[in-house]
Design a protein around this nucleic acid. Structure first.
Lengths: 189, 189, 189, 189
DNA sequence: CATGAATGAGTCTTCATTCAT
DNA sequence: CATGAATGAAGACTCATTCAT
């Protein structure tokens, strides 16, 4: 029997990511994905119930791999260090995986994004909120509603990465340092 | 095409904006726009050559109205004041016109956005770049590549406004002050 | 403006009926209907929301035209006469409209048939049940549960017409007489 | 193909019959049959060349088991007795095997029914025709073209059984008696 | 100008059948 | 024999655009 091949899911994910960054989510069709992944159109439906599920699972896969997975391991570090690591991690991922970021960006606010997917984001935001809460208690960072701070990190990271991807700028440790300093200066008390 | 009947064009623009914020750009159809604008589908094509042109013209209209139009009148003011006015202006517009912002956000990175439209953004970015350049010369702000600074303003504003729109938070002068201070602390030298 | 053309519905109905009798309900596709009706595939969807609705409306149209429409006008006649007229009417229709009957037959028990459609049949059955009830009171026909009698008329008519259509037998008044007599002898007391 | 493993073939037949009565012939898929029969999709093709053959063989199996098999053994009985036995046999089968009847009914006039299958019916009809021919010679039954009589039996049985299955009516000897009397009164001279 | 019916290419999805294991 | 992943042609339906009125 032809055994179910889990690397196929990765092939599909890669094809989807690449295509989205090339032609955009609007022109992304199931048959173009299949063609790019060198498989039949129907094969996609063996691994994913629908286009919507495929995109959502891809998003979750990328989000977990790029962001969520680092959170638990850094809980013991000092606040600024934690933020700095997250910033670095997120930025590295975003800049070195520009196709993935384009996909995530386009998907994020599309009609395809499900409840379930939005909750992932909330999980991440919740973690950061906690961190900021601590910082405020320790009087390290400004006493401002976290909902006004998080969009700075989030929006900045997204936009910076997107811009760098488009301009084909190489990311360096210096850039990460400089940009993190901007953020830190913004919020430190 | 394109006859002067600004009333009709505005009706079309409003219908498009409202619909996009309700159902998303992916599900925005020409006939749904027509229906919402209480006119026939074919009438849209009297004023716009294609869907693509309609969306691009709407984007330009909103962008000019919300941002570009204020730039020339504030050139004589001091740097920080200028940035503060722009920030306030942009944020006010974005928060009080949430449908418009949702449209702009979804359109901005869609397949519909044309070269011409992207150049508008560049115009705005160019202005800010200039401003930052002056600031650096006057040693008021950090000596960092402007391409690393602008995404902070741009991304923050977008994301903050979007978040506030979703959470239905009222904007106040206090919020504008607080958030601008974050930005300023980030870049001041 | 191209005015909405109600004869188009008839064209669609005719194409559907003819095709079903030729290739069967299973192979009936929307595009084959469109092709036969000499219009574009999308045009069908101007007049009918879906394939299911198209088929249901066609069935109702045929059922009303062939059967239901005669019922009200004969209420004053004697029982046997009424039954005889209905029998004649139904048989004539079924034999002279063989395509229609094939469609009705295939549709009747298909997955497409909706609740609404089945209720039409019930209406007809209810009328006959009434008639039989009267006959039993007047001691003209056998005192047997009507649910055991009606399938005789219904099944016989369907099957006879189908058989005659397939054998390409011409219907005559004699055949109608003979077959009605069979029915009548079956139920008269 | 077609190896002797009657257990498996029966499992397939039962799954097919049950599924058809539940979801209809239109929604009957090979993989749903396989799933219901607890085997792999490809296994079906070891026993049957195609979906069409599977359905035809099932129909023939049911038809022979329900009807054809009794014919030879009753040739010596008097006419009315023969008809009565057949009627009883057919009705019993149809009512007590409602899934099977639904399958037969839906299959009978579908695109899947082959020539070969239709000939089975003819065989049965031929037998009945013979019987009626005898009856006419003996002046027991009306001198009417048998093609006008057979649909009465055939259509009545089908429809009655279907109705009873849907209404979940229990069949009794009384009902069989009553309905046969209707038939007999219809045709006796 | 305005209308909205008509078009048909293109989309997602299904499913009978094949075939490598 | 048995499996079930893989195939790809075909179906229902959508929608930007055109055009007769």
């Amino acid at each position: 029997m032809r055994v179910r091949d889990d690397t196929k899911i990765n092939t599909i994910f890669e094809a989807t990511t690449a295509l989205t960054s090339e032609v955009g989510l609007n022109r992304l069709t199931m048959s173009s994905i299949a063609q790019r992944a060198k498989m039949a159109c129907g094969t996609l439906y063996i691994y994913f119930d629908s286009k919507e599920r495929l995109l959502n699972e891809l998003y979750m896969h990328l989000f977990v791999g790029s962001t969520l997975s680092i959170l638990p391991s850094i809980g013991h570090l000092p606040l600024k260090k934690q933020l700095s690591i997250i910033w670095s991690k997120v930025l590295w991922f975003r800049v070195t995986n520009s196709s993935e970021v384009i996909f995530m960006h386009q998907f994020r606010y599309s009609v395809y994004a499900s409840e379930e997917t939005h909750k992932l984001d909330d999980q991440f935001v919740g973690f950061i909120k906690n961190l900021l809460g601590q910082g405020k208690e320790e009087l390290i960072i400004k006493n401002i509603d976290s909902d006004l701070i998080i969009p700075l990190f989030y929006g900045y990271a997204n936009n910076l990465a997107r811009q760098m991807a488009m301009d084909e700028v190489e990311i360096t440790d210096e850039i990460i340092d400089q940009t993190f300093h901007l953020c830190w200066d913004a919020i430190k008390s």
